[in-house]
Write a protein that binds this DNA or RNA. Structure first.
Lengths: 219, 219
DNA sequence: TAAAAATTTTAGATTTGTCTAAAAATAAAT
DNA sequence: ATTTATTTTTAGACAAATCTAAAATTTTTA
């Protein structure tokens, strides 16, 4: 069985949304895919006949085992290509997302396995997200949200909460990268902003929104 | 301006066909693309409005400068990816064509340039075909058809006339690869078959059709 | 050069993924 | 517990790329 790029994008979007919510609503999917609810309904019916998801009208949707398998295969490709783009082709980690969105739909199974081997079976992509292996298994990273970090402990930025270009822009401006080491010096209850310190720089304050978009691991 | 995969496949097919014929007929295109003449007519009208080709009904078709530029960009991507697959991912040179047919439609300009750089600006792909550079220029290879080789001169197989799996199958069976060195020992006028010798092997005979599908350079 | 053959184009239909507008179902609020 | 608001689905239409069958054009051949 093979799938169109559009079908794959639906499966991937459902996969990501159901991590948080369990079942996914038509409107949430429409928003995620920048399309309309009516289009989503049509596609859900189609994907149901392909046994990729369980769908009852007005009840929302969840992926079947098959659907999850497909989603993981797509995520695997996406993250492997991102790793390749950054590590081999010298792309910046903040400019690979769109290209990987295209590359993830290349169908050859052999290509994925050869690429994985060539890259040395990486476990995490350049954003710090785990890369599913050929069986769909992902390493679990003991990362926590920056907002939850204890004070004065050294932490390393390991992933970001989204790939929005606004976020990546802000991080670039603040000189925060995957791998950047920092400490939380102070938390302000008023607006939940936090003060952080990067070695060799003056401490500075970041907003609650930004802190929540950053994941770190203790070092 | 951006183009669909289908549009790009039409442009590429016209480009290849017009190398031989100058102008390309509707039926020839339909055969090449495994589609019907009526579909070709529709698409030619569409591509004409996009200024990629000159088309007058019943008169056949030729690419414009713009069309050629696009065709060369696609050929460039195809051959760079083939090079990558064979040289870096350890694919056999006879199994990369289909994957490259998909990869050639990835749109990122930056990806192509970074890939080219990563690969070391290769001039020829694994089939011996020249890779257009970023300006569309190709190295000219002083290769001749095996059928035209003088007797008893050492030659090296540098490219094959087509990527048909039947041809690749036959070559594999006869143990002929890109880079294989051989001499033509005898030519038979009756059926235009030729006897060739590969070092360390008994001489054997190949058909006119096969000889015409092989290009060599003198060494 | 006129009839036959081949090629090419048009006309109308189909499939995929999308849309808008209206109807149906569910959830929220008074 | 009705009314109101929100969400979701249906109905009908559209654009892209394709098809078949029939008509138009060009080429071949007698």
């Amino acid at each position: 069985m093979s799938f169109t790029t559009t079908e794959e994008n639906y499966i991937k979007a459902i996969f990501h949304l159901q991590q948080e919510d369990g079942t996914v609503s038509t409107n949430a999917l429409a928003a995620e895919l920048h399309t309309k609810a009516a289009s989503v309904t049509d596609m859900l019916k189609k994907l149901k006949t392909k046994k990729l998801l369980n769908y009852e009208k007005y009840k929302g949707v969840r992926l079947t085992g098959e659907g999850k398998k497909l989603a993981l295969a797509i995520v695997r490709k996406h993250r492997l290509w991102e790793f390749f783009l950054v590590n081999n082709l010298q792309f910046g980690w903040d400019e690979v997302h769109e290209v990987a969105e295209e590359l993830e739909h290349i169908s050859s199974k052999k290509l994925v396995e050869k690429l994985d081997q060539f890259l040395g079976y990486p476990k995490f992509d350049p954003h710090g997200d785990p890369i599913p292996d050929s069986h769909g298994k992902m390493a679990v990273q003991q990362q926590i949200n920056l907002i939850d970090m204890p004070l004065n402990k050294m932490a390393e930025v390991s992933s970001v909460g989204s790939q929005s270009s606004e976020l990546l822009d802000l991080l670039k401006h603040k000189n925060i990268l995957i791998g950047t080491r920092l400490e939380v010096k102070k938390k302000f209850g008023f607006d939940h902003s936090i003060e952080i310190k990067i070695k060799g720089q003056q401490p500075f304050t970041i907003s609650q929104q930004l802190a929540q978009a950053l994941f770190v691991k203790l070092v």
